[in-house]
Write a protein that binds this DNA or RNA. Structure first.
Lengths: 198, 198
DNA sequence: CCCCGAATACTCTGAGCCGAGTATTCGCCT
DNA sequence: AGGCGAATACTCGGCTCAGAGTATTCGGGG
């Protein structure tokens, strides 16, 4: 058998859930939503069922029983196999222990920002800054009224840290462009002025 | 015509390149690599050619001429259309001005870290910390010997800021788990000990 | 007691993306 | 002269993913 390709983290979440107890796919989705994991892991039905199929194909999970309640569609309850438990541990260990470069669309946008004139960029950055602050406030107030135990909040704590770092950095950048400290600002501006005339 | 679906940022980069001058796909790839954009935008041939096709289909770029050098394969040179220029500006503006949640695999992993025993997690986090520091050093020394103008480095400056924020946060987390300050640590540990015996 | 909307439990299709593979040519080294 | 690796310029098939669509049932209001 070929080495499993570790793609969608949703598959890892599935392994995690089955580590606790057997479940059918739909229940996995709702359980994940109840626990608020949808904010850190993208869940959607299409992917969920493909992912479960692929895990079964690789022998990491196996159908335990097929039940039916009333005349609802059948539910296949899956259980974790032993290879599945090992895979879950090794995969999760890799995700935590080995950083991988993730391509964000904002980083891409920054690398192309020279395509817009400086003043436009400043306006947009300020817009982003405001929106980030708003998101941050929303998260903070959500957490305050939720008051779950720390272990469930780790991921959103991390998320907040990154958001704040981004906001502060944008702040600095905006100031530099505004007061002309930004290197090659003149060049940048000239380029767009020429283009506008030409 | 249906509204274009703004997917792959590589398409935006293509629009950006054609804003400067007409080019054929292979040249786009090499130009982007020369400028080091491959670090902020994922480039691969498969996607590049699909993306160019789709841009042409939507009238944002158009073939200008088909040349041939020696007996190499033909090269189709594309140029930006006016709708293409507008789309590039509005798309880039959106990417800068409107933050969108991006799902990183580390955030997913954090939300599942309870599946591993605390001591394992600490070891893994320390591993990650070391690797992050290493990456940071590599980037710093690359930038030092590269000495390009600021405008070309913005994206990697941003990247560094995020890496540092992550590293510092991990530092704090590790300390909390180590010295027992971490909330519900006992519960977490007990859960795994029971499981080991059971 | 009947209707409507929410919840249950998936299924399906098309689009997008990846990256290994292909075929040719240039240039350098011996 | 000829052979080999790097560069040129794409192509192709398979896999994944999104998310809208489907069919059924339960619960509550009038």
């Amino acid at each position: 058998m070929v080495a499993r390709k570790r793609g969608n983290p949703l598959a890892l979440a599935v392994l995690g859930l089955l580590w606790e107890r057997p479940m059918h796919p739909y229940e996995m989705a709702t359980t994940l939503r109840e626990r608020g994991k949808e904010h850190s892991i993208k869940i959607n039905y299409g992917s969920l069922y493909t992912v479960v199929q692929s895990l079964e194909k690789h022998g990491l999970i196996e159908p335990q029983e097929v039940t039916r309640e009333g005349r609802r569609p059948e539910r296949t309850v899956y259980a974790l196999t032993e290879p599945g438990e090992l895979e879950m541990q090794s995969w999760l260990s890799e995700l935590i222990g080995v950083p991988v470069k993730e391509y964000t669309s904002f980083e891409a946008a920054l690398s192309l920002m020279g395509l817009l004139p400086p003043d436009t960029v400043v306006t947009l950055l300020e817009q982003r800054r405001e929106r980030l602050t708003l998101t941050l406030h929303t998260i903070e107030s959500m957490l305050r009224k939720l008051d779950m135990s720390r272990a469930f909040l780790i991921e959103s704590e991390y998320h907040q840290v990154l958001l704040r770092a981004e906001r502060d950095w944008i702040d600095g950048l905006v100031k530099e462009i505004r007061d002309g400290t930004f290197e090659d600002l003149a060049l940048w501006r000239r380029l767009h002025e020429e283009r506008d005339r030409g």
